[in-house]
Design a protein around this nucleic acid. Structure first.
Lengths: 228, 228
DNA sequence: GCACGCAGGATTGTATACGAACTTGAGTTC
DNA sequence: GAACTCAAGTTCGTATACAATCCTGCGTGC
């Protein structure tokens, strides 16, 4: 409990910290996020915690159930499809723009991102690797200089992390970094069309690596399953 | 002050009511949204008002300035470009999907929407007409059965309303309904490719009807203009 | 013995009180 | 007379208190 006592938390920083934890699967889908619990952990009052949870619920990372509390969201199969369809609409064209605006600093930033991801994987820190791999995508949107689209993509990628937690099938481990390397090459050559194409197939590969058969809905809890 | 006293307001309904008012230009960009003022108007406490303002700030319809208060957002020229670029990424393909899933009920719903818009225009209720014309776009996303994308589009369209308030140039009044009529025909024929194309040019027309030369930044207030 | 009801405990929803920051305008000084 | 200082007033930021709702487990009645 060192970092919690020292820092001056605001609703924004708390929300970011929680989102980070969710993204890294330290807070798996369905986890109850009690207000008192969080307030004590961060050393703040429930007011700030509520604002943070509200923010996360707007990004659909947290589900607020009235008089029941806040829970880390559990995307349905349908949600999963929608998230990746939205990403397919936004990311390829954004990668295209990014390739054309790419500076050398941007390139080295992306390169170091991939390097960190490798480190994390080698150290067995899968959550951290997943987070970094998401950051790679957000960084591309930043480079494309589209803050609005960047916000959407950032939300979609955090949600993707939840989807991966629920629907990832074991096979095919690190095809991820391969695709990112290929994208980096396209960026280095400022080849927008290629980057767009690579991003498109990267996203398709991602969806293909999920198990989205409707039968395997997350069991979560009986009461929820039998709600109606 | 009749509707305010009777209804049982929640943060969601308050936020929706404010968003509606912003969308209809009853609350123009830059309007100060004092917490006490709103709390009294709706007959609730500041707690609910704050939650509503927080929600609107997440949708970038309201700008929260620390220790200063909440103001209806004033999108910059850059924001305006970004919003319409994002719409260009999302809406044409969404219209394509919508055309393919269109039911007869959906069609009549869209038709009645256009009719209401005409009524509003004839009655001189420009704000209401603008709101309805936005609803037309959101409805398309709903028909495409993409709730995630629908959320994004809904946000973008509300922001577009602010942009129109700031940057609309007088000429070319109601080309709007014309484009919507053409879209409706494409939908009626379940012609996805045509709907996609029409939506694309509709959005281009919209941008073209704006005055986005950087020189004419909104003057808002002197103190803001001279901030640095 | 099973099911229903009810009460106690826990958790969230809302309101309010208090403290902090900013704005504003008058007063003072140079 | 102009500019600076400071204090009063206003508005937001945070914490806390109380009310409402829900969950849980025990008791009672059939």
């Amino acid at each position: 409990m060192n970092k919690f006592e020292t820092k001056h938390w605001t609703s924004d920083t708390v929300a970011a910290d929680l989102e980070h934890a969710i993204h890294e699967h330290r807070l798996p889908p369905g986890t109850k996020l009690g207000e008192d619990e969080l307030a004590e952990a961060y050393g703040i009052s429930r007011t700030i915690v509520r604002a943070a949870l509200l923010a996360l619920s707007h990004r659909r990372l947290v589900e607020l159930k009235r008089n029941r509390g806040a829970f880390v969201a559990q995307p349905t199969v349908r949600d999963a499809r929608e998230v990746f369809e939205a990403r397919a609409l936004l990311e390829p064209r954004t990668a295209h723009s990014a390739a054309e605006r790419m500076t050398d600093e941007d390139l080295s930033l992306l390169r170091s991102n991939i390097a960190s991801e490798h480190e994390a994987l080698d150290a067995g820190e899968n959550g951290r690797a997943l987070f970094l791999s998401g950051q790679f995508h957000v960084e591309i949107a930043r480079i494309a200089d589209q803050t609005t689209v960047q916000g959407f993509i950032s939300e979609l990628i955090s949600r993707s992390s939840l989807i991966i937690a629920l629907y990832w099938r074991r096979r095919a481990a690190l095809c991820e970094t391969q695709a990112h390397h290929a994208l980096l090459d396209a960026f280095a050559n400022r080849d927008g069309a290629l980057a767009e194409q690579l991003m498109k197939s990267h996203l398709l590969d991602l969806v293909a690596s999920l198990d989205l058969r409707n039968v395997t809905q997350p069991p979560t809890s009986l009461r929820e399953a039998l709600k109606r």
